[in-house]
Amino acid sequence: MARMNDIGGMQGFGPIDTTEDTEPFHADWEARVVGLFNALRAQDVFNTNEFRDAIESMPPAEYLATSYYERWFKAICTLLERKGVIEPGELDD
């Protein structure tokens, strides 16, 4: 099955927002998510390839509806559930 991240050459995404932004993160939670990724990978909870796969196998509608670092967060949660570190629903309100 084609994965939604494989968009090279796809048409319809419109113009590029070429705004110059030099801030690496646009909210504190984005930095925390990158920190979580690096910390969990350093502890071998998961590896980079598993993480990529978790992002790339997101359902297309969900992939397109989420921001870059939201995908990271969802992938981390998916892997933590798959590895049994957290239970499904444990993060819900």
Binding site: W29, A31, R32, V33, V34, G35, L36, N38, A39, L40, A42, Q43, V45, F73, I76, C77, L80, V85, I86, E90, L91
Partner: peptide, 24 residues
């Protein structure tokens, strides 16, 4: 949700907040 996950991982002893700051 990100904060909650951090807290959960600290409670489970998977990582600490100080460690995370350092890594960031």
């Amino acid at each position: 949700r990100v904060r909650r996950l951090e807290t959960l991982l600290e409670e489970k002893g998977v990582l600490s907040g100080a460690q995370l700051d350092e890594i960031i």
